[in-house]
Design a protein around this nucleic acid. Structure first.
Lengths: 154, 154
DNA sequence: TAAATGTGGAGTAGATATGTCCACATTTAC
DNA sequence: GTAAATGTGGACATATCTACTCCACATTTA
């Protein structure tokens, strides 16, 4: 029961974009460096986010990505569903009837409670909640593999 | 973000044992049939539960498994930890410092909330909560692959 | 002593997650 | 107009995990 790196990368990237001055964007390489994610893999993640409608991309020189919505209009549930599809905690809770058990399945109530709890948190949490406190400070930094600091947009 | 079948199988098997008359047990084959789980795989699951201390096993003819605790003394959290180890939702929340980010990781608060919610539900829910209502009724049944009914202990 | 059980661990097939690569279309700077 | 900088699309590769199988063996009881 673990969240995927893709989902984690997606959120980090979106937060990165949300911290930029309004109207500004960032390109793949900048996001990749600041979030310590392989460029080629991040490209795939960003494509999901573009298709999912939360990010817009511009081609060509000086192109890149920017948020299409205000940070408080993007919930983690949206991001989850873009990256992973419908939130489902057990295979047998699918609608395709793959569960061999009767309505009397005793576990169902727990799975439902669990799903509701997770979905609730995802639905309540927006990118705005993930922005570092204290206003638009400097872009979040990560320690790169050499032990130094990587700056976004370097 | 999905729970494993092992966990699901473990719970079903424990509930099966919990529904038997006190002092009675069930053998692999009986559990396997009633829960529609491959015997050889279930054997592995049960070994986990035995080592985890929630189930006792007896060898030899007429051997089998039985619960070591009252159903309301076995929480889903215990079962989860026996089957899957420590509850962790993201790799980077490990204690081994594999996360490359500073304390300022903005997502950490969400992961903590999420973990707390899941853990809370698992901790509050015991096998007793999963027993079918209406007392010790007949053992839970499943539809087997032939479309008929499988009875526990058949 | 034979049959019925659980034990232990190696092995396997398939799925999924993660990551790489390259040819290509688009845009902008010069 | 051309070259460089970007994102796009998809095939490919790799690693890890899940679910499951199999078999030799120890133990117990009829």
């Amino acid at each position: 029961m673990q969240l995927s790196k893709s989902f984690d990368y997606a959120i980090r990237s979106l937060v990165h974009l949300a911290m930029l001055p309004p109207g500004k964007g960032a390109d793949l390489r900048a996001i990749s460096i600041s979030q310590n994610v392989p460029v080629s893999y991040l490209a795939k993640v960003m494509r999901h986010l573009v298709r999912g409608g939360v990010v817009s991309s511009t081609l060509g020189r000086d192109g890149g990505y920017s948020l299409r919505k205000a940070p408080d209009q993007v919930t983690l549930l949206q991001v989850y569903e873009i990256m992973e599809g419908e939130l489902r905690l057990v295979e047998c809770m699918q609608s395709d009837g793959s569960c061999a058990f009767f309505n009397g399945c005793t576990q169902a109530t727990v799975w439902v409670r669990l799903r509701a709890a997770v979905e609730g948190i995802f639905r309540e949490t927006t990118l705005a909640d993930l922005l570092p406190k204290g206003g638009n400070g400097p872009v979040q930094t990560a320690i790169n593999k050499e032990g130094g600091y990587a700056r976004a947009g370097a």
